[in-house]
Design a protein around this nucleic acid. Structure first.
Length: 887
RNA sequence: GCGGGCGUGGCGGAAUGGUAGACGCAGGGGACUUAAAAUCCCCCGAGCCUUGCUCGUGUGGGUUCAAGUCCCACCGCCCGCACCA
């Protein structure tokens, strides 16, 4: 008997916090900007402090943590920071609903979530922690905003906003549901307000070009950004109208100009408005257009509608008069709000022309001979021009250039690039955000707050009991003297969109001087972020805005970085089965009693999944809690699990349970798992291991109770194995040495590729291999190095086991060196196929010649039996791998 | 509609064009135990005439000595965008 700690189970409950304290004390994970080591900046998208961390955070931060810890073991100086995206609406909602102050609510949440993150043992540099709601952060943001203002990247203009008349606030598009405010339910009005904008469109081309350099970003995200930026090249030209005016239209298909059979303008186009002012039918039509819904489904099914203005537009080449319509499918926001319509080659125009009996003339065909091939729908494809006068026979690209050149020569039009990307409106009429540092003066106009007066701090004494912007209502805050003339003036009461906060936080993490937003030289030490990890939901806005800010700050000369994130990884969600039962709700409405059947979602803890039987047995009549089962005869409710039949039921009632889809965890579906509970049950390392196992990190990870139990068992299994380390054991085990070194190499490359599920599988294999091996020096060495290999994933267990060596913290150890000689086997298993089908395998020395392999293969009894005397026609040999005999 | 992705055992998933199903979970059998837990060992795609054979990676074709992998067509699911001229 010994009193080795390995004789008892690994006790995560006490070990986890002990090692977390040890890392803090050693300041292990504080990044040193002056270190001579190569730098590595690993960053996960910082969380919004909503209250508690959820399982998605755990997955996200575990992945980043494994990479950060691995990089550190590989000798990099690692920056792996954490902070809080702390401004935003939920804090104001809490203030309105519960009477708490947004700041108090936010900081309490931060405290809770920080404690929870610490429980997971993340290797974070907490010395760089920041919260965007801290004046020490947003004051610098105000300074940067002023810098952008000075270089002309900030401007003000009147713009339409969604205004909720009840809550007296501006709503984001996502907060408008079916035309009503999501909170108040009031009909949302369009209001013209003077808003602050950032000139992101100035960088449209650059943001697009930059995507081409982001080889380590998911193709999907680059495409989404490309579509969002939406570059199109075409022609803008003027039609002479029959009323003497001119109408500018934009087209990306100038090659189809001879197929134009009508012209259409948006309902809110000035021409349409002009017609409406003298024609009440036109005015009615425009009203009708505005009523159309804006949901995707409505748009898809919306009929193409038009109103003939009676005005003619003169075709620039044929001189024919084309009718001018007001059309519901033309958007004022894109191009010039007016189009030349070519029904033969645009489906919308085709639908419209069909409805209103307008000519449909083919002008592009697969070949000149197919010039009059019939059309049943618009053809948007490539081809050559037909029925097109001077363009006939020309290819599309050529024809586009020709038309643009001719109209440019006449001064009637010009080649033009149009973008879908709009400037970024950053004004929010809210309290809990960065105050926009400007002052409105009657005499001087809009005056920037002098940098010496920053930060412009939010007032603390604010009132949320009535709707509207508390900053605007505050009795004193907005009344200030004009910095230029000293006269009484008014402070800007809008605050910045919270996306601004997250557009530069990665710079502040890298360098945080007190007197300026960051130090350019220190930023240059760390940026770009080597690996950025977060959710796909940020594929467009956050990532585009951060790329824009980086460029804008470079444009101001503040940094010398173009792309902030060298590699991007978007992880999948954590999902869970849903459980529900049929339920009945009875509502009394005056005299009438209403009965509603509905599906009630159940907490997984309330569901019994243990009541099972064999297919040839009689089903039980009571569940695992002894409650009689209801409806066991309902075979639709019975599920198969291996050889067993399971009847899911409500533990307390025996009522049948429907197992629903595996979907993202959400409170309303009751399929959430609280990370803190599972850490308490299984320890941080088991939870981390689960997050990395099985599912590839970009895919969804289905949560399962048995899965986490398996991870908990593996933690103990490793612990027992670590206890078998024997420094005195002698003798070599070459096979185990090979397995070890192959695993070291594979786990390293798997982690670098973020293929954590594969690294996990390798570690299981090595663990099994060591367990089966007889005691030897090799075995002890393998155990010792296995501790280091698992340390990025299970840091607490690894520290506890590493402590026996007295070599300090495993977090500060070195990743094992790979001996390349041990990566190659001296024996290989060669597959022997006959006509491509496996017939035998041969274990032979590595490096046999093709002739030797062929001879061995032909000597195989199984091969000879399979050949059955047939003539061998050909033998393909892949050295050390395979012999294929073709008969 | 446009763009992208994915279809492999009961489940999550492995597989540089070269032994399909590594590894984990679930399941089965056994050992240990008074018993349970824990642990350990074995089995675990389907079928059959079971020393082995046949079939098998959504469906149908094709390329190849060899296809989960490459090409063509189709089916299904998921995600994103959407009347963008």
């Amino acid at each position: 008997m010994t009193d080795s700690p390995f004789d008892v189970r690994f006790d995560a409950g006490q070990a986890d916090s002990r090692w977390q304290a040890a890392w803090d004390e050693a300041r292990c994970f504080e990044a040193d900007s002056t270190s001579p080591k190569p730098k590595s900046y690993v960053l996960e998208m910082f969380p919004y402090p909503s209250g508690r961390i959820h399982i998605g955070h755990v997955r996200n931060y575990t992945m980043g943590d494994v990479l950060a810890r691995y990089k550190k073991l590989r000798g990099f100086e690692v920056l792996h920071p954490m902070g809080w995206d702390a401004f935003g609406m939920p804090a104001e909602n809490a203030a309105m609903e519960r009477g708490v102050h947004p700041a108090g609510w936010t900081y309490a949440n931060i405290a809770t979530m920080k404690r929870q993150l610490k429980q997971l043992g993340f290797a974070l540099d907490w010395s760089r922690e920041l919260a965007t709601c801290d004046p020490a952060y947003y004051g610098h943001e105000q300074a940067l905003f002023l810098d952008l203002y000075e270089t002309g990247l900030v401007y003000r203009r009147t713009s339409a906003v969604n205004w909720d008349p009840v809550d007296q606030t501006v709503l984001a598009n996502e907060q408008v549901v079916d035309g009503r405010g999501w909170r108040s339910g009031a009909l949302v009005e369009k209001r013209q307000l003077n808003q602050w904008f950032l000139k992101i469109t100035q960088f449209a081309q650059d943001l697009l070009d930059g995507l081409g350099t982001l080889d380590n970003w998911p193709e999907k995200v680059r495409l989404m950004q490309e579509n969002w930026i939406g570059k199109s090249q075409g022609l803008q030209f003027g039609f002479d109208l029959s009323n003497g005016e001119k109408l500018e239209v934009y087209t990306t298909r100038p090659d189809t100009i001879f197929g134009a059979s009508f012209v259409a303008v948006a309902p809110d186009h000035p021409l349409a408005q002009g017609v409406a002012s003298v024609n009440c039918d036109a005015a009615k039509f425009i009203e009708l257009c505005k009523q159309g819904g804006t949901t995707a489904a409505e748009l898809e099914t919306a009929e193409k509608l038009g109103f003939d203005t009676g005005i003619g537009a003169k075709h620039p080449f044929t001189g024919a008069w084309l009718p001018v319509f007001i059309a519901n499918f033309v958007l004022m926001e894109y191009g010039t709000g007016a189009i030349m319509a070519v029904p033969a080659h645009d489906q919308r125009d085709f639908d419209f022309a069909t409805k209103y009996g307008l000519p449909i003339v083919r002008v592009i065909a697969a070949s000149a001979e197919a010039a009059d091939a019939p059309l049943t729908e618009a053809e948007a494809g490539d081809g050559v021009c037909v029925n097109s006068d001077f363009l006939d026979g020309k290819a599309v690209v050529e024809a586009k250039a020709e038309v643009i050149a001719r109209l440019e020569a006449d001064g009637r039009g010009e080649g033009k690039t149009v973008w879908r990307l709009r400037d970024w409106g950053v004004s929010r009429q809210r309290y809990w955000g960065t105050p926009i540092p400007f002052i409105h003066c009657e005499a001087c106009g809009v005056v920037p707050v002098p940098k010496a007066d920053l930060p412009v701090v939010l007032p603390e004494d604010v009132d949320f009991s009535v709707p509207g912007n508390p900053l605007d209502r505050h009795p004193t805050w907005k009344h200030v003297a004009c910095p230029q003339c000293g006269a009484a003036a008014r402070r800007e009461t809008d605050t910045l969109d919270t996306f601004v906060n997250s557009s530069w936080y990665f710079l502040r993490f890298a360098s945080q001087p007190a007197d300026k937003p960051f130090d350019a030289a220190e930023v240059a030490q760390w940026l770009p972020v080597e690996q950025y990890i977060g959710g796909i939901e940020h594929a467009i806005l956050h990532l585009l805005y951060a790329r824009f800010w980086t460029r804008a700050l470079a444009h101001c000369g503040l940094i010398d970085v173009q792309e902030p994130f060298a590699s991007l990884f978007t992880q999948g969600m954590v999902t869970h089965e849903t459980y529900s039962r049929d339920a009945l709700r009875i509502e009394q409405r005056g005299e009438i009693t209403e009965r509603h059947n509905y599906e009630e979602f159940l907490d997984p803890k309330a569901v019994d999944l243990q009541t099972s039987w064999r297919a040839n047995e009689t089903p039980p009549t009571a569940n695992s809690a002894g409650i009689p089962l209801i409806d066991t005869f309902d075979h639709n409710r019975v599920i198969r699990r291996g050889d067993l039949l399971v009847f899911p039921n409500v533990l307390e009632t025996g009522q049948p349970v429907t197992i629903g889809k595996v979907i993202k965890m959400s409170k309303s579906k009751k399929n959430v798992v609280d990370p803190e509970d599972i850490i308490a049950d299984y320890g941080a390392d088991a939870v981390r291991w689960f997050m990395l196992s099985d599912s590839p990190p970009e895919r969804d990870l289905p949560w399962s109770e048995s899965g986490i139990e398996g991870c908990g068992r593996f933690v103990q299994r490793l612990w027992r194995l670590f206890g078998q380390y024997n420094g005195a054991a002698a003798g070599a085990d070459l096979a185990l040495d090979r397995k070890l070194h192959q695993t070291i190499a594979a786990v390293g490359s798997d982690i670098e590729a973020l293929s954590f599920n594969k690294a996990v599988a390798r570690i299981y294999e090595l663990t099994g291999g060591i367990e089966k091996a007889a005691p030897s020096a090799s075995r002890s060495q393998a155990i010792r190095q296995l501790i280091v290999l698992v340390s990025p994933m299970m840091p607490h267990l690894a520290e506890e086991a590493w402590a026996r060596f007295g070599l300090g913290l495993v977090a500060q150890a070195d990743w094992p060196q790979v001996d390349p000689a041990l990566l190659v086997e001296d024996e290989v298993t060669v597959a022997v196929q006959v006509k491509g089908k496996l017939r035998d395998t041969l274990t032979v020395a590595k490096g046999l010649s093709n002739a030797e392999l062929e001879a061995l293969a032909l000597g195989s009894e199984k091969v000879q039996r399979s050949l059955d005397g047939a003539q061998v026609r050909k033998v393909i040999v892949v050295p050390d791998r395979l012999v294929n005999i073709v008969a």
